[in-house]
Design a binder for these strands. Structure first.
Length: 591
RNA sequence: GCGCUUGUAGCUCAACUGGAUAGAGCACCAGCCUUCUAAGCUGGGGGUCGCAGGUUCGAGUCCUGCCAAGCGUACCA
């Protein structure tokens, strides 16, 4: 399971030992606790790794950087992997590694295989990742898809780095939007029962609502039917008739509850379960799985909301105004105070969200990650304010924002209109593009970056398509091993291992470095919640491999060189596989 | 108006969180294709890091002020 410390880590340890020595010598203050930062160099003339530690410490040590660098170098413990250490530039310490040390990565990859790149940095820490959490009022669309892909990869990355990860979907199975859905279903059901009327402008108009109404007819006949005249008696005007669409739909909801009695809950649940099941299937097919589907309604049923509000009240953060109960979020960094209980006695969505986030922390998570659409950014201050007001540790909550994706078909923008209900669903996108390309494109960019998703590019079988390019590198390696057998050879791993030093071509040493970087990339991508770093890395690795492939023959006559090369590409294949696995993308053996 | 996010090559995006000469892909230009997959290959040109100040050994990265785009600014979720 555990892989060796990366070279970066080893060097960090050496420097921190040197710093400790200088503290003892009195060169550095004992209470100085610098963050030691080793970087891979961009320029080979600067060696393999560089540290700016002397530049950072020069001021507190009241000395000049170059002199301090000299002292650090002098205090550095010796290490077989290091060829030489140089002082350069303004005070950089450059490390040149022993060329023979670079081959170790192939043995490391072979030994760790599927586990290469995993680490223990998160061991003992519980992280909850909440993502998608779309209202179950309709199918997921392409906006939700990006959050789904992003959240699941962040979860995979955190798991790979040792965190105990709990992925969760918050189901908004209560509240006004769900009432609108239930009422929409009922109205479509009435239509199916033969009633005719104008469908409300603010109701859900998607075709799926009709489908649900149809199943309701099939299972319950006309049990919930009422004549149009009764249903619409004495209602205010809808918006197109000069009224208010919100008041109109609210009146219809009340009417539904009044006429249906217990039946309202039946229809409500049929709508909810139908759509939720569809969302679950959709996500499962997309390779996105959850530890828990957390019900908002459960927070009402078990009194969590009342409890949370009671704490806010006793902490003096609630007051009454205009018949509603307000939370003093403006005292804790929010722009203004927020309503938690409306004047009609109903609690707001925010009220249950307060209870929900409190509940999360009560469950003992060290870190909470919420992944939201960027349009919800204004919501962050009030949630943090609420946690503060409850006396909880608000710094444990990290809200990651995901910008929406714009779909393109070549030069043409794919129009989307949520208003008419004619948006592109995630399922349609998956059907057209495939799971692999969909996931890849979704996490290819930094999450807070607006992104263009080109459907034509994503489905094209060319090197311009980055998914294809990376997967093809994997398939190509597999193909080499088929060729090997066709040519009558067999791989001799031990012989290859014994002769890795024959891998001296520029392409080969470049690949060794790229392979060694993989664990660093995973660690960084995980701790920064930035999956796109992994994508970038895999594209680089694929590029390095393809160039190598084009420049050199692997299946050569020399037994030692051939097997050394085969071991190198075996290692590349393994890392490609591991990386793609974390992204939830297949590593095809042939294309 | 206020708040958040974004602004890097013609286009789409990176840049190890303050490091050394800002990098890829596409497009463009010039060469190349008898090979384990030409579903290409090699090389090249291309930059006022939105603008202007500031902080320091050092700024695309931090601070301030402008400019532009997106989003938000509900007793909706």
């Amino acid at each position: 399971m555990t892989t060796r410390d990366t070279m970066k880590k080893q060097l960090e340890n050496l420097i921190s030992q040197a710093v400790a020595v200088l503290k003892v010598q009195g060169v550095l203050d004992a209470d100085l606790n610098p963050a030691i930062n080793i970087e891979r160099t961009r320029d080979v003339a600067h060696g393999d790794f560089a540290s700016n530690i002397a530049l950072m410490l020069a001021k507190p040590a009241k000395t000049n950087p170059r002199q301090l660098a000299e002292q650090i170098i002098a205090a550095l413990p010796t290490n077989d992997a290091i060829l030489k250490v140089e002082l350069a530039g303004a005070g950089f310490i450059n490390f040149f590694m022993n060329p023979n040390a670079q081959y170790q990565v192939i043995a490391d990859i072979q030994a760790a295989s599927d586990n290469f790149g995993k680490s223990q940095i998160g061991v003992g820490k519980k992280v909850q990742v909440e993502f998608v959490s779309a209202n179950p009022t309709g199918p997921l669309h392409v906006g939700h898809g990006r959050g789904a892909a992003y959240g699941s990869v962040v979860g995979n990355l955190l798991t790979a780095t040792g965190f105990e990860v709990h992925c969760e979907y918050y189901v908004n199975d209560a509240g006004r939007q769900m009432d609108i859905l239930a009422t929409s279903v009922w109205l479509r059901y009435l239509e199916a029962c033969g009633e005719t009327f104008t469908f409300p402008s603010n109701a859900y108009r998607g075709a799926y609502v009709r489908d649900i109404a149809q199943t309701l007819v099939e299972h319950h006949g006309k049990n919930y039917a009422h004549p149009t005249a009764t249903v619409f008696a004495d209602l205010p005007l809808d918006e197109p008739q000069g009224g208010n669409k919100e008041e109109y739909i609210d009146a219809l909801i009340s009417r539904a509850k009044q006429l249906l009695g217990d039946g309202y809950r039946v229809i409500f649940d049929v709508g909810l379960n139908n759509i939720l099941d569809d969302i679950k299937d959709d996500l499962a097919e997309f390779g996105v799985t959850y530890e828990q589907w957390f019900s908002e309604r459960s927070l009402m049923d078990d009194g969590s909301i009342e409890k949370a509000l009671a704490v806010l009240k006793s902490n003096n953060y609630l007051y009454e105004k205009d018949g509603a109960i307000w939370f003093k979020s403006s005292e804790l960094g929010d722009e203004k105070d927020r309503v938690v209980i409306r004047d009609n006695g109903q609690h707001t969505y925010f009220a249950s969200d307060i209870a929900y986030h409190w509940n999360k922390l009560e469950r003992g998570f060290d870190t909470l990650i919420d992944i939201w659409g960027a349009d919800h950014h204004g919501y962050i201050p009030r949630v943090k304010a609420a946690l503060n007001a409850l006396g909880a540790d608000e710094t444990k909550l990290h809200v990651l924002l995901v910008q929406f994706a714009t779909l393109w078909r070549g030069e043409e923008k794919v129009q989307m209109s949520t208003r008419s209900g004619e948006f592109v669903t995630l399922r349609e996108l998956r059907d057209e593009v495939g799971i692999d390309a969909t996931r890849f494109f979704y996490v290819m960019r930094r999450s807070e970056q607006h992104m263009d998703f080109d459907l034509e590019l994503a489905t094209s079988k060319s090197n311009e398509n980055p998914v294809f390019y990376v997967q093809y590198a994997h398939a190509r390696i597999c193909r080499v091993f088929e060729q090997l057998i066709e040519k009558g050879f067999t791989q001799d791993v031990a012989l290859g291992m014994a002769n890795l030093t024959e891998l001296t071509a520029e392409h080969e040493t470049a690949l060794l470095t790229t392979l060694a970087r993989y664990p660093e990339v995973i660690e960084r991508a995980a701790t920064q919640y930035e999956p796109h770093l992994l994508i970038n890395y895999l594209r680089e690795l694929a590029t390095d491999f393809h160039t190598y492939y084009n420049a050199h023959q692997f299946i050569v006559e020399s037994d030692t060189l051939r097997n050394a090369r085969l071991n190198l590409i075996t290692a590349i294949r393994q890392v490609l596989q591991n990386g793609l696995m974390l992204l939830g993308i297949s590593a095809p053996v042939a294309m």
